[in-house]
Computed example of a mutant assay.
Amino acid sequence: MALKIGRGASAPPFLVMDVIAAANARAAVLPPGAFADGLGILRMEVGQPGTGAPRGAAEAVVAALEAGAPMGYTEAFGLRSLRERISAHYAERYGAAVPAERIAVTVGASGAFPLAFLAAFDPGDAVAMAAPYYPPYVNILTALGMRPQILPCDAATRWQPTLAMLKALDPRPAGLILASPCNPAGTMLPAEEFIAIARWCEAEGVRLISDEIYHGLTYGTVEERSAAAHSSSAVVVNSFSKYFSMTGWRIGWLVLPEDLVRPVECLAQNLFINAPHVAQVAAEAAFACRPELEANIARYRRNRDALLAGLPAAGLDRLSPADGAFYLWADIGHLTNDSPEFCRRLLAEAGIAATPGVDFDAARGHRFLRLSYCGPEADMAAAPSRIARFLGR
């Protein structure tokens, strides 16, 4: 007799992880001098900064280990000193008063989303989001028995939802996931639109989940705002993975409204116990590493500018504005209607790993791909010419 397999086991793959595996396999068999530019596989598939943790963060961990720090359990919400430092960050950057008691340190943003969703929503609840979207939003909600409500967006709305779009929803969803800057398009909501949406959600009883993991990675075209400064009911998700360049440390945080503090704490105690102690030590020290981190942003800006200048002539001329984060959302509908096959050939023939758009938009993603530009400058500079050759330009 066949054994039952749970509903959660049917979650679709996060395709970028499959692309990473394919790129690793291709790199392992790549002969020397395979490409005229002398470089290997250009890794443009994943949002992982090419730099590691800032030096001060690594040094803080070494010092703690050499001092014999036990690195045992912390409180479920994390080290008090780290939570206080995050609280100070909100006052310094956004002018927002966020007490440490409302901050939960989590196992990355990936660990924060299930906590937020379980505390804020019930099975069957509809949670709205713009398409294209970060795939785990949909996959986690679905695994938890909730209903993703997709709002198709396009270049006319800068790949972001509009207040008019939300007001037209009947019935109202239980929640809205908002990301500014967003993954995969890198676009941002203008400050007045962001604030209007945050206030509408609070007035209409729609729980706002504000994904702010790309905060700090902006290029001056749109003002950055945090929901923590504009809504008392919003949940803010952030992470040390992107701006702080600490992806593998698996450390993030939540800013919680008062009514969700204890529910999330109980969930965290049972599901995760606490985020890794050693990562919390590194995270606290990372706040003192601003000059190094700002230098990283300058590199991303140069990469962004090089691609925006070079890709149109190479044949990719339908690109998102790229206000923040480190992604370009490219419309390749004039070249193909099969983005997975296009990305497979791009890797095999041109040595460029890119993520097919179907990962981010099941309905329309077959004609898009995402390019990440947080890798080495030499690699990003080489990408347009490789793409041009691949497309016969």
Rank of each mutant, 00 (worst) to 15 (best):
P148G: 07
D170W: 13
P148S: 06
L178K: 03
A164C: 04
A116C: 04
P123V: 02
C153M: 09
G108C: 02
N183K: 12
L178S: 07
G108F: 00
L178D: 10
S110D: 08
T187V: 11
L118W: 00
S180G: 08
N183C: 15
F113V: 00
L178C: 13
C153D: 03
G111E: 11
C182K: 14
D154I: 03
A126V: 05
I140T: 11
T106V: 03
Q149W: 12
P135K: 07
P181Q: 11
A143K: 00
L178V: 10
D170F: 11
L144Q: 03
A109V: 13
A126R: 15
L176K: 05
K167C: 05
A156I: 05
G124K: 10
V107H: 06
P123I: 02
L169S: 05
F121N: 00
L176I: 10
P114V: 02
A156H: 09
G186W: 05
I150V: 14
A109K: 11
A119G: 05
G111L: 04
T162S: 12
P132M: 11
A174I: 06
I140F: 05
L166R: 05
I150P: 07
G175Q: 06
L166H: 04
P148F: 09
L151N: 04
A156Y: 03
C153V: 13
R158D: 12
R158Q: 12
M146C: 08
A179R: 11
M146W: 01
M146V: 00
P184C: 13
